[in-house]
Design a protein around this nucleic acid. Structure first.
Length: 412
DNA sequence: CATAGAATAT
DNA sequence: GATATTCTAT
């Protein structure tokens, strides 16, 4: 029950305005017999914290400032304290220590960088894994410090404003199921892995062989609310596109023009959308409903997919890729497109259930076989890119990697 | 001006 | 290779 002060204060410090906190602290301190240990402890905590966020100093300039202030004040107080306690003469070195500490790690770079960015990045990454101060662009506005080589380059290259349409941003994250860690694996993991672990979801893991027609009750038209339980962190924590995105952020009331305020709008790239198997599945479903990849337009697809944060461009891009990939696998010789790739091309229905819940209406009215669409009355199969082919190609989970080449006919 | 598709860029 | 962004035509 001793001095819990530091504990509390530590918390306060993070979210409160320093002056107040410090004041409180000091008051508390003096009320407590000026316990030097307490002060020192707190001070050391602060310094520790400072060290931690040092790597982020560019992004959290204000935090650095506050912290520095706090430390300075406390240092002074500490001196006083000691003096009083030991009645010894002042030792003014009050402001030196701070510098000293930082000095070791690096400190001069206030704004040149570009190369030592590397160090910083590493630091950041380290911290990133444990700490999570990355929520918002808090202060990305750091005047001109925000570099990122690429960003900078882009900025210089073209300052033409870009429409920042996707206002939806937040609240997306339908089912981004990719594990996208830095050096990690990517792409689709077998569905068998999806559910399980945290959260409820009655779904029961669904192995790839069991359930095939989960629930058709289309009751829920839920716009895609299937949050993949276990993978929620998957695609690179897109909790918010920030890092240093288009710093739009609409800085409120311009706050205090006094300091760094000018928010530069840099053109940062969007976070890559991760086309999880689920997403792709929706995509394909939509295509089907729209009559094949050739007939569908990005917009239609997007609408059909009903995925929240999904943008036209994203769909467009995906569609482009999709077409590219599906084009290469013409049914070769007439029918029996399947079979190729040894079972790799099975009807999507099998995978359809994948895992997830909700399932929304997806698996239902697909009319799996509308192949008879009739479109081709026997015309020359030569081309072989009529809707059907798309269907074939699209069939399963997402393996366009088809490596398979049609040995038969070379072009030219 | 909005959208689709192709061509590039990252 | 997968996405994003830009360019061009509609």
């Amino acid at each position: 029950m001793g001095s819990v002060a530091a504990e509390e204060l530590n918390l306060d410090l993070r979210s409160s305005f320093v002056p107040k906190t410090i004041t409180d602290f000091l008051r508390h301190l003096s009320a407590n017999n000026n316990h030097p240990a307490t002060l020192r402890d707190f001070l050391s905590r602060l310094e520790d914290e400072l060290r931690k966020i040092h790597a982020f100093k560019r992004e959290l300039p204000l935090s650095m400032l506050l912290l520095n202030d706090a430390i300075s004040v406390l240092k002074v107080e500490s001196q006083k304290c000691c003096r009083v306690a030991r009645d010894s003469p002042p030792v003014l070195e009050e402001f030196i220590p701070l510098k000293k500490e930082l000095g070791d790690q690096s400190e001069e770079e206030e704004e040149n960088d570009d190369d030592k960015d590397d160090n910083e990045c590493r630091d950041k990454r380290n911290w990133m894994s444990s700490v999570q101060l990355w929520n918002n662009n808090t202060t990305t506005t750091t005047t001109n410090n925000n570099n990122n080589a690429s960003d900078r380059k882009q900025l210089l290259h073209k300052l033409q404003t870009k429409k920042s349409e996707e206002g939806q941003s937040v609240a997306e994250d339908p089912f981004q199921t990719c594990s996208n860690r830095n050096g990690g694996r990517r792409a689709f993991m077998p569905f068998s892995r999806y559910s399980s672990s945290s959260s409820s979801v009655p779904v029961t893991t669904v192995g790839l062989g069991a359930a095939s027609k989960e629930e058709k009750e289309e009751s829920v038209r839920n716009r895609l609310s299937l949050l993949t339980p276990s993978v929620k962190e998957g695609c690179g924590s897109r909790g918010s596109r920030s890092s240093s995105n288009r710093a739009v952020s609409s800085s409120p009331p311009t706050a205090q023009p006094g300091l760094r305020a000018t928010s530069l709008q840099q053109t940062a790239r969007k976070q890559r959308r991760c086309w999880s198997p689920e997403l792709h599945r929706r995509f394909v479903n939509a295509l089907q409903k729209l009559g094949g990849s050739q007939a569908a337009t990005p917009k239609q697809i997007r609408e059909l997919m009903q995925v929240d944060g999904l943008t036209n461009d994203e769909v467009k891009s995906h569609l482009q890729k999709y077409r590219l990939h599906t084009r290469r696998v013409p049914a070769a010789s007439s029918n029996q497109p399947v079979v190729v790739l040894g079972g790799l091309w099975m009807s999507q229905d099998q995978y359809n259930d994948s895992s997830k819940v909700s399932s929304s209406g997806s698996g239902s009215p697909q009319s799996p076989l509308h192949l008879a669409a009739g479109s081709r009355g026997g015309t020359s199969p030569t081309e072989g890119d009529s809707i059907e082919d798309d269907e074939d190609a699209r069939s399963e989970s997402y393996s366009w990697k088809s490596h398979m080449n049609k040995p038969g006919k070379v072009d030219v």
